[in-house]
Computed example of a mutant assay.
Amino acid sequence: MRDSIIVDMKYADFDIINGQYGVERHHCLGGPNRKKADEDGLWVPLTPEHHRMGKISAHQSTEVQKLLQIIAQLSYELNEVSQGLTVDEARKKFFDRYRKFYI
Rank of each mutant, 00 (worst) to 15 (best):
D8N: 11
K10C: 02
L85E: 02
Q60G: 13
L42N: 00
D15K: 00
W43M: 04
D3A: 14
L46I: 05
Y98Q: 02
T62C: 06
Q20A: 14
I5M: 02
K36W: 05
G41F: 01
D13F: 00
D96V: 01
H50V: 05
H27R: 11
D38H: 08
A37E: 06
Y76A: 09
P48W: 01
Y21M: 09
R52K: 12
A12E: 13
Q83F: 05
G54L: 07
V7M: 05
G19Y: 01
A58N: 12
E63D: 15
F14G: 09
Q20V: 11
I71C: 03
F101V: 09
I70F: 03
C28R: 05
A58D: 08
V23H: 02
T47S: 09
E39F: 02
N18Y: 02
I17W: 08
P32W: 04
L42Q: 02
R2N: 15
I5H: 01
T47H: 00
F95S: 07
G30M: 05
T62R: 12
I56C: 08
I5L: 05
N18H: 11
R97I: 06
K100W: 07
C28K: 01
S4Y: 04
E39W: 05
L78T: 14
L85S: 11
H27G: 12
K10W: 00
Q60H: 14
F101N: 10
T86M: 09
L78I: 10
E77T: 03
E24L: 09
K10D: 10
E80P: 06
Q20H: 07
R91L: 13
R25Q: 10
H59N: 13
D13P: 03
T62K: 10
Q83P: 07
N33L: 10
R34N: 12
I16R: 04
R91K: 15
W43H: 08
E24H: 06
R97K: 15
